[in-house]
Each structure stands twice: as C-alpha cells, then as structure tokens.
Design a protein around this nucleic acid. Structure first.
Lengths: 153, 153
DNA sequence: TCTTCCATGTCAATATTTTGACATAGCCGC
DNA sequence: GCGGCTATGTCAAAATATTGACATGGAAGA
C-alpha cells in the first residue's frame, strides 16, 4: 500500500457529493464499535441494549415494534428477544387476550442491567456531543432527520 | 414534545429517539436501505459497490485496505472480493513478488458495472444533500468527521 | 355478515459478518 | 544478522441478519 492514509483520498473534482454517505457510514461504524466494546463488559450486544432502552421507555412494546425501533427485521428482533428472555432480562406472555402482538416488559434484572450499561453508552454519546462546536447540535440533529426523511420518500 | 434547549446540556433527552446515536443509526439504516434497493437492479450489494468505488479511485488496493475502507473485517472483505472475482469484476494475483498484500484491480466489466450503478447511488446522495438547508452541508460534514475522531480516540 | 386486507409471530433456509486462530512476509531497533 | 513487532491473507466456527413463507388475529368496507 502506498502511505498511511487508510484509504479515501479524494477523487479529482467531485462536487455532487462530498460523500455524505461515506462519512455517515464511517461515524456509524465508529459508534457501533465504541458501543460494542463498552457493552461487552455488561454482557450485552448493541441490539440487545437498544431493545432494553426502548422497553424501559415504552413498556409493553411488541416484537414488531422493537424491530422497527431498532431498524432490523421482525425475525432478527425475535432472536434478540429470545436471548434477552433466556437471560431473564425481559418477560413476554405466550398469549394475549386481544390481537397477536405480545407485549414485552423488563424484569427487575433487566432494569438493573440497563442502568448498569447505560452509563457507559451515555459517556460515548457525551464524547460525541462535546466534540462538536457549541450550539451546532440542534442543527446537526435536524439535518440528520431531514436526510432520513428525504431517503424514506 | 419537549422544546429543544439551545444549549447542549449533557443529557437533555428524555427519549432515546432524541439521542444523536439513535438518529445516526436511523439515517444510516435509511441510506443502507435505499442503496440496497438501487443496487439490486445492478446485481451488486452495498459492500461490493463500495469496493468497486474504492478500487476505481485507487487501483491496486489490497484486501486489508478495502476492509478498512469499507469498515468491515478483513475476513468479510475477503468474502466480498471472492464474489466480485467470481463475477469477473475484479482481478487479483495469486502471488506477489514483494510482501503479502495482493493488489486488486477492476476488470473492464467491473468498470462498466460500476459506471452503470454509480448513477443510482449518486442520485440517492443527491437527495440527501438537497434536503438539507443551503450552506449547511460543510458544517454537517465537519461535524460527522469530528464525531468520528472523538469516538476513535 | 363476510370477505378482503394488513399486521403480527414464527419457522426455515440462506447470506452476511464477526471472532479466533495461524502461518508468513517485511520492518526496525539492537 | 537477529529477534521482536506489526501487517497480511486465509481457514474455521460461531454469531448475526436477511429473505421467503405461512398461519392467525383484527380491522375496514362492500
């Protein structure tokens, strides 16, 4: 390989995109990596932690709800829930009196685990947030949302 | 919904969906989805396309280089390269006179495929870019990079 | 009512990615 | 030169995720 630049030296003159996609991917990968490392010490994967966080905030979410909330398929979420149940961190009824959606809830152990892990994850967010210039966070969040909307249409 | 504080307090968000991590994940998922759909028509996966783009820009990259450039492990990149080779889109020597790194190159078919697919991908980036307010793109890109740096340290 | 449609949960098969491990090639300080 | 160090390619196994399919429960409308 030629130098220490890990890869991307810019193309000649590409204006259309400053490659937002590439940078999004990069920061996502860095975030994922940091969270993976931090959560490993709490015996949680990123999807597992995401589910716990969502369930803490909105108890009773269904598998399909959690799939949407964590941006994976229903099937993947199902596997995650099975793992969480196996670990005794959530409860899930086998039937329900109305509908098919099975409401999921955190167990006390699940709440404890979440609280233990949350600090590590929040510290990572804190690092990100503090790194960007004062007052620019609102615009950044707004732009991320705007791009999401533009892509979903 | 709660007002947005102009000051980036440590943890102003009550809701995980307010977190920057969540929004990054969301926009990444949306982008990934859009690219998947667009590339499917060209018989390419996102990692495959990413490799082709990198190889077009910097011919002769090694498997490890491409792994870093696409933010996956060497092993994953190896699988992708095998697929691309199978499809006749790249060439890779079996040995080299110096070192272990095997320089990869696009075949003419690979270049054609890349050119065919590139338009669809650029259109997606264009949608993202056009959606954000005039003049805010540079700051957005800078903030993404800044966060990446903050996470990598 | 009933019939069509959509959402959910889940099974199975497949694909993708990572973790762990190992041998080899080159570099650098000694 | 030599020994440690890092980087690379690759194998194998496991974890993770997706695609495809199907049955069921409920809602909406003719």
């Amino acid at each position: 390989m030629e130098e220490r630049s890990p890869v991307p030296a810019p193309h000649p003159a590409r204006d259309v995109t400053e490659h937002v996609g590439y940078r999004l991917k990069r920061v996502s990968a860095a975030l994922r990596n940091a969270m993976d490392k931090a959560l490993r010490e709490h015996d949680l994967t990123v999807p597992q932690y995401s589910c716990l966080e969502l369930l803490d905030e909105r108890p009773g979410l269904s598998n399909a709800d959690l799939a949407r909330g964590t941006f994976v398929t229903r099937q993947s979420a199902n596997v995650v829930l099975r793992g969480l149940k196996e670990a005794g961190l959530i409860t899930r009824p086998l039937t329900t009196d109305h509908g098919r959606a099975l409401p999921t809830h955190l167990t006390p152990a699940g709440e404890r685990r979440l609280r233990a892990a949350r600090g590590a994850v929040y510290a990572i967010e804190e690092r990100m947030i503090r790194s960007i210039p004062e007052g620019r966070l609102p615009a950044l969040l707004a732009d991320l949302d705007t791009m999401t909307d533009a892509l979903d249409e």
